[in-house]
Write a protein that binds this DNA or RNA. Structure first.
Lengths: 190, 190
DNA sequence: AATTTCATGTAATTCGTTACATGATTCC
DNA sequence: GGAATCATGTAACGAATTACATGAAATT
């Protein structure tokens, strides 16, 4: 019982707080600036999440500086919170590939191990390729002539997903290149 | 109590059944072929939805042809179901603009009035433009230098949304052109 | 005969939202 | 001193999923 709010929001909060301590209101703005193109969290989910993280000891209120009548509650990551964050950042399974969570995982790639980054990017790519396959074969199977709107929707959808696959291909290539040159500064060839 | 499953799934089911009667299993495949690029429904949501629509009298089982031991339950739209579908197709408010529902509304544009189509496309466009605005200003506000992953995420996100806006612009232009030529066949000018 | 795929359904759970309620602080 | 926006929180609900359970039909 009560393991807390969803993993995605948990990661988003812990990841943000890892950078710098923040209070709820500010945190939400940060998140929506960072991820606004993909998703937006509301206060109604954020505050319960903070409460839950606090109860689990993963975050703590920053000391209220004694006398100051605080109307802001600033949270920071605890040691356990940092451990938990690392644990979440190391997850490279489906939970990191899906539409709702991929963007959040990606946003904190700076703190993710190179190997895990690569597995997430590849996982995401094969997830999208499965989707392309599924739709393409289903499309071939449906003999019925589709109306122009349906066709246009299919076309645009396929194109968008194909674009993301190309984007992932570039990122994967970059990651591979980066990991294969641990130290490269002296020019040994011509 | 019990107004039924979400509007999106309801529209998707009624819209599909408007074309041709189907049983649940087949219906799901159709939907996932039609909308697979955007979303996928599971049996766990589809069957309860069918049940609810049946109870509301919006769909009916096709008569089981007497003797045949049916293991398929084929549903078709009732008169009330057609009315309800028209009602849903006429909704041009936010419920038709959002990510989760826009694709479903668009998929049935064939049955939607030209005026409503236009308002949905425009609504969707301004929703996306709001999102672009929000992220852009939030981005300008954050003075902090972002790491390369965050930047790349922002860039890709912005570009994707901008692409969809351009797509919508084309669709809107096409719709406008089409509505302004009610009958154009005889060449009256040179 | 065994396995796969088709087909239907339910219960518990997940993950989040909307709407509401409340008050402090800053801007004009 | 009134309005906007900053700030925190809760209760009720929404919309779908996952996991489970079951069995018929087709394929090998």
């Amino acid at each position: 019982m009560a393991s807390g709010q969803g993993r995605v929001l948990e990661l988003a909060v812990l990841g943000s707080l890892h950078e710098t301590p923040l209070h709820g209101y500010e945190l939400r703005k940060r998140l929506n600036a960072l991820l606004g193109m993909f998703r937006a969290f509301s206060y109604g989910s954020l505050y319960p999440c903070l409460k839950s993280l606090l109860e689990q000891g993963l975050i703590a209120e920053e000391h209220p500086t004694a006398v100051t009548g605080r109307s802001k509650i600033v949270y920071k990551l605890t040691a356990e919170g940092k451990e938990r964050l690392q644990e979440l950042l190391t997850q490279a399974g489906p939970s990191a590939w899906e539409d709702e969570s991929f963007g959040v995982h990606f946003a904190f790639f700076r703190h993710t191990e190179a190997e895990v980054r690569l597995r997430i990017l590849e996982g995401r790519r094969s997830r999208l390729e499965e989707r392309l396959d599924g739709v393409r074969t289903a499309l071939a199977r449906t003999r019925e002539r589709l109306d122009s709107y349906t066709l246009e929707l299919q076309r645009h959808g396929l194109e968008s997903v194909e674009r993301e696959v190309r984007w992932l291909n570039e990122l994967i290539a970059t990651e591979r290149r980066a990991s294969q040159e641990p130290a490269k500064d002296m020019s040994s060839d011509e």
